[in-house]
Structures are given as structure tokens and as C-alpha cells.
């Protein structure tokens, strides 16, 4: 299904951020992406805060997927 496809895509994108394969993304991981993405550290921090819904300082694959879903306009149910 489309949702399944999106979750797969989210997983791939998640792995681009989680280079050490920790299973979560920290703000530091995010800021490291400034070398690869055309975003400023402030923007990356903004993205992180936006995705970190429970404000625990870690982005889980689910939070990441939900962020991608919000971006694409699809609700991803847990």
C-alpha cells in the first residue's frame, strides 16, 4: 500500500540521518547533516524540534515517519 511504501521510504531516510545505526537520531546527528544538505544548523535544529514530538531529545523511526507523513499529508497510525 501507499502507507507501507512511505514507511519504507521513511526508513531509508532515517538511515541517512542515523549513520551509526543507533536506532534513533539525536540533535547532533541532525546537525551533522549540514555538510550534506542545503540547510543551516538552525534549520536542522528546527526540523529536529518539529519532529521530536515528545521532546525527549531523540527521534525514533516512528516520530521520523510521522514527520514524513505530515509532510506528505498522510496520517501514519502507530
Amino acid at each position: 500500500s501507499f502507507q507501507q511504501e512511505m514507511l519504507e521510504k521513511a526508513k531509508e531516510l532515517f538511515q541517512l540521518c542515523d549513520k551509526e545505526e543507533k536506532g534513533f537520531i539525536t540533535k547532533r546527528d541532525m546537525q551533522r547533516l549540514q555538510n550534506e544538505l542545503p540547510l543551516t544548523p538552525e534549520q536542522l535544529e528546527d526540523v529536529f524540534d518539529n519532529l521530536d514530538q515528545d521532546n525527549n531529545g531523540y527521534l525514533t523511526p516512528l516520530e521520523f515517519s510521522m514527520g514524513l507523513g505530515k509532510f506528505i499529508g498522510v496520517e501514519v497510525l502507530s
Partner: peptide, 29 residues
């Protein structure tokens, strides 16, 4: 305005982020 403050356009930044990641994914296998 190039001096856009982070936080004012969260959704735009989010879109920019995901678009960049997506193009990175497809651009460099």
C-alpha cells in the same frame, strides 16, 4: 528575505529537509 529566522517557517523547513533527503537518496545511490 534571505535572513529568514528559523522557526517562522517550520513547515517550509521540514519540506526542504525531506526534499533534500529524498533527492540525496535518489541522486546518490
Amino acid at each position: 528575505d534571505p535572513n529568514m529566522k528559523a522557526g517562522t517557517t517550520s513547515e517550509g523547513v521540514l519540506a526542504n529537509f525531506f526534499n533534500s533527503l529524498l533527492s540525496k537518496k535518489t541522486g546518490t545511490p
